[in-house]
């Protein structure tokens, strides 16, 4: 085990996958210069472990700023023998390629009766909470959850980032990886050897008995902090990170809520039709009888993201807000 950053773990998974399989290639905007730090040992072209030097321009390649074309070309390449990892940098850029994602990537295998397989990974980063304004702050993973045929991962720890990305690269189906940039610098213990975390298996971050707190992506650290605070107040919180949003580990969530009888779901995406909405509906349908309190969703409001730090910071769930919700559903008085 080594202490590794989330970003370093992404780089490690990419490097291991490229070493293991020549069909794995990386394409995207600014990948050759390692601008975001996932395609090399450092930010300098000459630093050790630089992907361009290790694998050559055939296997790591800058693209023009043509998201629709990039996504479609990666899909066509995946259908005919390559296993591309596409770095789309900002998650907001995915919209430029919406037709390719929805009509080609997600549908081709199905509508051609299983003739196609689509082993391609699309990585993108959600730059929310960083004062980048409305065009760079999107958390669009729920939109893509609404598209059958795509698999979606949203790892929240360095260990999960490495293991899930590796499993995504191994998958013969298209996988979208959403990374919260606020997690990129997060450090944690990561296995040095190659390993994979299967898609569709949630991580119970913390076991508890009084309330289930499901947290997604960048909300996980805040959820853990809030859970710790409630622990000091005598409430036992079970924190579950689904890690994979499609397929969703429904059993882990339902089993936990059946045990605790309470659910708080927290995520940085918009409220309407979000992952939290989906998980809430699932719990209400399946384990309604176990519920001792109304379900609480903590999300961003259905509002655009403003630029000014004084405006933006109120837009996402906070650890104080999560703690307050946990107190509410467990009947504790506000602290």
């Amino acid at each position: 085990m080594s202490i590794m950053s989330y970003l370093g773990a992404i780089g490690a998974a990419q490097r291991e996958a490229m070493e293991a399989d020549e069909r794995v290639v990386i394409v995207g905007e600014d990948v050759e210069a390692n601008v975001y730090g996932t395609t090399g040992g450092g930010k300098s072209r000459s630093s050790e472990g630089d992907f361009l030097q290790m694998f050559g321009r055939n296997r790591i390649r800058n693209t023009p700023i043509s998201e629709e074309g990039i996504v479609g070309i990666a899909a066509g390449a995946a259908m005919t023998g390559l296993r591309p990892i596409v770095d789309l940098s900002y998650s907001s850029f995915l919209y430029m390629a919406m037709d390719q994602f929805v009509n080609q990537v997600a549908k081709n295998r199905y509508m051609f009766g299983g003739q196609a397989s689509m082993p391609v990974v699309f990585r993108s980063a959600m730059f929310y909470g960083l004062n980048t304004g409305a065009h760079h702050s999107d958390r669009p993973y729920p939109m893509f959850m609404n598209v059958p045929g795509l698999k979606i991962i949203a790892p929240a720890s360095p260990e999960d980032a490495k293991g899930l990305l590796r499993a995504a690269i191994d998958s013969d189906d298209p996988v979208l990886a959403f990374e919260a940039v606020k997690l990129w610098g997060l450090k944690g213990e990561v296995g040095d050897e190659p390993f994979r975390i299967p898609l569709g298996v949630a991580r119970t971050v913390k076991e508890g008995t009084d309330v289930t707190l499901v947290a997604i992506s960048g909300s996980v650290p805040d959820a853990c902090a809030a859970a710790d605070r409630l622990g000091e107040e005598g409430v036992s919180v079970e924190v579950i990170d689904p890690r994979t949003l499609v397929p969703l580990d429904t059993a882990a969530i339902l089993t936990s809520v059946a045990k605790t009888g309470r659910l708080v779901v927290v995520e940085p995406a918009h409220r309407t039709c979000g992952a939290a909405a989906e998980i809430s509906a699932l719990v209400a349908e399946e384990v309604f009888d176990a519920l001792k309190a109304p379900i609480v969703r903590l999300t961003a409001p259905d509002m655009q993201i403003p630029f000014s730090p004084s405006l933006e910071q109120q837009m996402y769930p906070t650890r104080d807000g999560i703690a307050a919700a946990l107190r509410r559903v467990t009947g504790l008085k506000p602290a």
């Binding site: 069909r23 290639v25 055939n58 296997r59 629709e68 074309g69 996504v71 479609g72 070309i73 990666a74 899909a75 066509g76 390449a77 995946a78 259908m79 005919t80 023998g81 390559l82 037709d99 390719q100 009509n103 080609q104 081709n108 509508m111 051609f112 196609a116």
Partner: peptide, 25 residues
Amino acid sequence: SLGESGIVGSSIPIATGSAFASKLL
């Protein structure tokens, strides 16, 4: 035949991607 597309123009990058794979492989 890698497929028709009911969306006008949408299959063009798919063919291009298969050419990309052929070149790299």
